[in-house]
Amino acid sequence: MTVGPLTVTDLVVEFVHDGYAIRPLDGLSFEAQAGELVVLLGPSGCGKTTLLSCLGGILTPTSGTIRLGEVDVTAMRGKQLDAYRRDDIGFVFQAFNLIPSLTARENIAVPLTLTGHDRKASFARADELLEQVGLAERAHHLPSKLSGGQMQRVAVARGLGHNPPLLLADEPTANLDHIQAEAIIRLLQSLRDDGRMIVVSTHDARLVPIADRIVQMVPPDQHEERPTHDVTFGAGESIFEQGDPADLVYVIKSGDVEVIRVLADGGEELLTKLGPDQYFGELGPFLGFPRSASVRAHSDVVLTAYSPRVFREKVLHKT
């Protein structure tokens, strides 16, 4: 079951949405070893699920590489990816995603039979896993008769059906109260101790203390306390580009700027023009999102750059 290291290098995923390109992952790199519990930490929309999809061979990245041991996952296509998912990857989906018509036992066994495993052996494996996750007595219950925590444990057991070396779990403690979440955390710990690599996406800080490795999906806020300062840009000069990490908020002292959306085909769409005393770029730093548009100086401009906290206190609260 033990697998070689997981190496993610310069991973980029770009989607086209409503005509413009967005990059939930932009040059991500990290490494993890077998037997580690890796926590992908970040707010909603920061690309955690996209990364899990790439790791699981469900989504092909725009560029960059993912290697699991000697295997280049990003070079695989079609049936190779099917086999990779079938043999090497276990999935635990957010919201459990159990099949509502199947009992707990069947939810674990049926995916195994559908991927070519012997029927009898699949059900024996399901019984063994239900025992392991402490749900043997609920084996014949439909998901609708299980609590959230129990459903998540069945989902984990399903992910372990074919004994994969890499288990990918998407928000496994979301929607669970602290008692149920604790049971799942304990379960993940025990699975990690078996030598399995576990990659968990979460924005739940309760998972941080048990993590062997934390991948910050959004760079930590290093600009909170940057001093307020003026900056100048010449006409046509870029102030920031769409997709850049968001750090500062700008208030225009003089001159005009253009807010532009860069389209997927390379074209540009003018969203608005802003002039003196107007501000821009505030949502990205507040929410931890990258810039959603580019801003360019239309004439020579003088801007005051604020950290988000100072901007909130001195500008927003004053108006």
Partner: peptide
Amino acid sequence: QRDFAVLKAVGASNGSL
């Protein structure tokens, strides 16, 4: 649809679904 997506994600073939 979600069930099929889950089963596909775990490696079930189009044929079996």
